[in-house]
Amino acid sequence: MTTAQQTVADLDDRALVDGFLAGDETCLETVHRRWGPLVYALAWRSLGDAREAEDVSQLVFLAAWRGRAGYVPERGTLPGWLTGIARRKIADALAARTRRSELVAAAGAQLMLRHDECVAPETAIDRVLLADEMSQLPAPQRRVLNLAFYDDLTQTQIAEVTGWPLGTVKSHARRGLRRLACRLQDADAVECAA
């Protein structure tokens, strides 16, 4: 440990919090060293998986660092604030786990329903993901895309079936495809506009 790290490690909680709020990275290291085991223990007990607990712990401290301006010492202690962030990140991890389980189950059901056809597991998963994302679209966009993809109708035919102007059908198709593309790609890689 260097002299600077030793000095930071010896800080009382108030000085450490002040340094953390000011953006001092050595204070962040000390905060992580002091309360990282607490955050990890909460995550491990809730998730029951060491790797997932490590990931959640990292997310907690990343969120704390990025959102440090939102911490108000008068409202509670830093470990309490970190615990609140940890609870939200744990809930997110559990929700993601449930979602993965549901997708795997739905893909398995797709494979079982199509046992007579030669369907690769990846294809079944893609179908389930696409169906799930399509269900998240606004109703007009979903209707236009369903008519185009599953009923194999042209935009002119969709306009006739729905009674909507051709321009409206084209707008719904374009917006629906854009939303699908954004939702199916990594959210950080694409800036999605509705």
Results as ranks from 00 to 15, higher is better:
Q58V: 03
F149W: 06
A105V: 01
V190A: 04
A50R: 09
T7L: 12
A120Y: 13
R75Q: 10
A159T: 00
G163I: 01
T3I: 13
R143L: 13
L129W: 03
V144L: 09
K89C: 02
V119M: 14
A194M: 04
R114Q: 14
D151Q: 12
P140R: 01
R51V: 02
Y40I: 01
D92S: 12
L42Y: 03
Y71F: 15
L94N: 05
A43R: 06
S171L: 08
A105W: 03
W65N: 10
L113Y: 08
A187W: 15
E29A: 12
T7H: 09
T7K: 12
V60Q: 11
L145Y: 00
A189S: 05
W35C: 13
W65Y: 14
Q141C: 02
A86Q: 01
Y71D: 11
L38A: 12
L38G: 04
D186G: 02
A173V: 00
L103F: 07
M134K: 01
W44L: 14
V128Q: 08
A193N: 04
P121C: 00
R66D: 12
L145F: 00
A189P: 00
R45F: 03
G176D: 07
G84P: 00
E160A: 05
T2Q: 14
D13I: 11
S57T: 11
R99V: 03
V56F: 13
A173S: 13
R88G: 10
V8F: 15
D12F: 06
L78D: 07
A69T: 13
G23Y: 13
A50D: 12
R114I: 06
R45A: 05
G19A: 11
T3A: 15
E191C: 01
C182P: 01
A50W: 05
L177D: 00
Q5G: 01
G23A: 10
E122T: 15
F149N: 01
G108L: 05
A96L: 12
L153T: 02
I85K: 11
R142Q: 06
A53P: 11
C27W: 07
G23P: 14
T26Q: 08
R174V: 08
D186P: 05
L147R: 00
E102R: 14
R99D: 07
L180A: 00
V128H: 02
Y40T: 01
A124P: 07
L137S: 05
S171H: 10
G48C: 03
T83A: 15
L42W: 05
A193R: 05
L130D: 02
A131R: 08
R175W: 03
A64K: 10
E74A: 15
